[in-house]
Design a protein around this nucleic acid. Sequence first.
DNA 1: AATACGGGGCC
DNA 2: GGCCCAGTATT
Length: 359
Amino acid sequence: MNIKLGELLIFWYARNKRNLPWRKTKVPYLIWISEVILQQTRVDQGLDYYLKFVKRFPTILSLASATEEEVLKYWQGLGYYSRARNLHATATYIRDEKDGRFPHKYDEILKLKGIGPYTSAAISSISFGLPYPVIDGNVTRVISRIFGIKENVNSSEGLNKIEKKLKSIFISESPGDFNQAIMELGALVCKPSNPDCAHCVLSTKCIAFKQNLMNDLPNKTKARSPKNIYLYYLVMKFKKENIYFVYFNKRQGNTIWKNLYDFPRIELQKKEKKSKIFNRLKQSKFLIDSSFEIGEIMGPIEHKLSHRNIYAYFISISLDGDLEKNNEEQLVDVNELEYEKLPVPKLIENYIKKYHNWV
DNA sequence: AATACGGGGCC
DNA sequence: GGCCCAGTATT
């Protein structure tokens, strides 16, 4: 008896898989949403977002009918917000151009905004039973260990080897189960550090295990260290008809947190003295013609991203009244109730929750 | 081929 | 403090 490696994987998966909501369906829309949420995101982090998202937007049509702002609000805190913008854009595209039906072919799915090779293969295999193997971080790790692939998996050479070996064990009769099985093994057993080889169904066939290379594989290019930036947010408050408002800024352009809201800000590469900040502040285009009073400064609040270490300061500023609107930034005056509907970056959410007072 | 894009968990 | 995560788009 010579059981195939792929069969072993599927057998293990059947007995050990987690009970996750998107595993109870094959509906392309739901698989799509789950796969996009899980891009660069762990199940634990994405699970609640998935449940709330599909409850509010249960169909392609409901998602297409919503505003992007509301979709972003449901995404708030999850990061990589282009995912949410692309989901919304693609939903409207499918509604308007595809008769509301999700495409059925790998190549068609691949063309959709926000869907790359991984996600198209995942949807194709899980929803439509098409024989496309997925390659994600889990698969790369599992394959490189099983076959002892030492090439840098970030290189095209390494990736080609991964792909070739993966195809050699792929079970095209059960593509969805195979794909989820190998990812599940990567997530639960063949973990990045301290893999649980003692409980791995593949250990006897695993080169990394046999040669004790588990902690050396996969061989990856190490990430560059993040850059420090210093943000000085202007929290401009004023009173209108006995209600307190703050100016928020809808972020424009192709940059971080696009279409989310924060405050007008001064961005610096280095930490500067308060006096220098105040000088910059008084000359800022928002305040140059207004009368105002500087209140307390909060911070720094540290906010660490994969590519940035942000040190954020929040400068409370009391205005006498309305500001003249500035064209370059999209300023909106927002009160406490209106704020609840606005999508904001986690950093801003943290500040508001912990430190901001509206009056 | 390299970089931007978020945020959280683990060691 | 670095590494990694059910990646994609852009340069």
